[in-house]
Each structure stands twice: as structure tokens, then as C-alpha cells.
């Protein structure tokens, strides 16, 4: 009977999608952070563990499926966010000459579109920096500690073998497997660049502000607000919005200092 039915027709349903994709992306961030924290491990062991992790993340079918859900969520969240932001503007064509919005609402809640756009630019740069480099770039291959032998994807050292430019490990003229790429070194070299480090830190500040409002806002959008749970949701949201982006941001800063 209602015409406001349909997947995207009403503002409220658009906000449900916004909230569900946002909540999923926060779960994704948590997982991504756990993986990244391995970058604090140093030396050959650290390098090996991180590169093995990169192999797992790019080959495991469950992770693959999750990564597609993540791409779709980011796209959907961004497009829906832009559609909503346009509807927001349309609802007040003539603004106030004198307005004090800071008296009634936090800055982050009024600037989700700008913060989200910064995050979107960041995601594109970030994918180019590491994802594209890893998949299609001229990535070096992981070598054993003595620097003489390449490693296979499962981490075994292929003594006396060589690697072709396409990443095949050759031993006595025979292809014995795929070489492990050295993402660890790409990351280390990347964060030796101070401009990139500053950009990452700024993006994480934007992420923090996006989540300070976004976390509790998502629960409100899906109808979860009451006197019993909301105080806890708001507190957890603040903690999440500070801790997760902070830990993400510390990594490039730490690696930069270590490289210098």
C-alpha cells in the first residue's frame, strides 16, 4: 500500500543502509587494524609474518568474499552518503544570515559529508599505495635471511631457486610454485616518505571525527536508542573513534621514525 516502500526510496531506509554499511565498515576497520599491528614486529621474523599474512589475505576464499562485501559497502556507503548530503542541502535553499549551530550540535555531526569525502580520497590513495602495488606493481620478492633464496607463498625457503619476473619460483628449470611478495618492504619504503605519513595521519583524524558521530548515529538510525543502552553505546563509540584511528595513525609515524 505504501509508496515509500522500496530499497532506497525513503530517507529513513537510506539511513538504515548508511548505518548498516557503516557498522560493517567499523568491523572491517577492527580486523584491518589487527592485521596492521603486525607491522610493529621488526626484523626478519616480522617481515616474514607480515608477508605471510598478506598471502593469507589475498588467497583465502573467506577473506576474498569479505573483501568484496567491504568494497560494495564502501561504494554503497559513499554513494548513499552523497545522495543524502544532496537531499540535506536541498531542504534549505536559503540559509540563515546569522547562525550558531555549535550551540546545539557537535561539529562532526554537521560535517559527515566532508569527513567522508576525505576518507574516500584517502581510500583511493591507500589502495594505490599498497593494494595496487602488491597486485600489479613491480613488487620485490621476499628473500631468505641470507638474501640468497626466494620464499614460496607458504613460507618455505626454496634454496638455490630463482624467481621469474612474473613471480614463478624456478628450481633446475622447473616451476615449483609462486614466490612470496615482499609487501613489508613496500610499506617500510612507503612510510619513509614524510608527506605520505602526514597524509595518513590527517586522514585518520578525519576518520576519528567521522566515527565520533558515526558510531552512535548508526545505532540511532536503526532505532536503537533508549535510556538503558544509549549511555553505554555513546561511551563505547567515543572510545572506538579515538582508539582505532589513533592506532592506525601511530603505525606510519612509528615506521617513519624507525626508518630515519
Amino acid at each position: 500500500m505504501s509508496e515509500s516502500k522500496g530499497l532506497l526510496k525513503s530517507h529513513i531506509v537510506k539511513k538504515y543502509w548508511m548505518a548498516f554499511t557503516g557498522l560493517f565498515l567499523m568491523l572491517f576497520l577492527t580486523g584491518h587494524l589487527a592485521g596492521n599491528l603486525q607491522l610493529f614486529l621488526t626484523g626478519y621474523e616480522g617481515q616474514l609474518q607480515f608477508n605471510e599474512y598478506a598471502v593469507f589475505m589475498t588467497t583465502n576464499p573467506a577473506v576474498k568474499l569479505l573483501s568484496y562485501v567491504t568494497y560494495i559497502s564502501i561504494l554503497f556507503h559513499a554513494i548513499d552518503g552523497i545522495v543524502i548530503s544532496m537531499a540535506n542541502r536541498k531542504a534549505r535553499p536559503d540559509g540563515y544570515a546569522y547562525s550558531k549551530p555549535g550551540k546545539n550540535s557537535p561539529w562532526s555531526s554537521r560535517n559527515m559529508g566532508i569527513l567522508g569525502t576525505i576518507i574516500l580520497v584517502y581510500i583511493v590513495v591507500h589502495m594505490q599505495n599498497f593494494w595496487y602495488e602488491y597486485k600489479f606493481g613491480k613488487t620485490e620478492f621476499m628473500m631468505s635471511e641470507d638474501g640468497l633464496s626466494p620464499l614460496l607463498q607458504d613460507g618455505t625457503i626454496a634454496e638455490g631457486a630463482t624467481v621469474t619476473s612474473t613471480g614463478n619460483v624456478m628450481l633446475a628449470g622447473e616451476n615449483i610454485g609462486v614466490a612470496m611478495k615482499d609487501l613489508y618492504t613496500i610499506v617500510m619504503e612507503g612510510f619513509a616518505n614524510p608527506i605520505l605519513v602526514v597524509f595518513y595521519v590527517l586522514a585518520m583524524i578525519a576518520m576519528g571525527f567521522h566515527l565520533i558521530h558515526g558510531f552512535q548515529s548508526a545505532f540511532q538510525s536503526i532505532g536503537l536508542r533508549n535510556k538503558k543502552y544509549s549511555p553505554a553505546i555513546i561511551k563505547i563509540g567515543y572510545a572506538f573513534a579515538v582508539i582505532v584511528p589513533l592506532l592506525f595513525a601511530i603505525i606510519p609515524v612509528y615506521l617513519f621514525i624507525m626508518a630515519a
Binding site: I12, N88, S105, S109, S221, I222, G223, L224, R225
Partner: peptide, 28 residues
């Protein structure tokens, strides 16, 4: 032509009758 809700909470602060945004969650 009223816009979507961004959950800024400005309405609740400015409402002269103290209507809570818990109502918006209930509506959703």
C-alpha cells in the same frame, strides 16, 4: 520537502518542549 535526519541532535536541544530524539529512533 523536509530533509533526511543526520542525527545531529540539534532539534532536541532547541525544542521548547524537550522532545527527545528517542522518539526518532522509535519512528525509525
Amino acid at each position: 520537502g523536509f530533509g533526511p535526519c543526520s542525527n545531529t541532535g540539534a532539534c532536541e536541544v532547541e525544542c521548547p518542549k524537550g522532545i527527545s530524539i528517542e522518539n526518532i529512533a522509535r519512528m525509525n
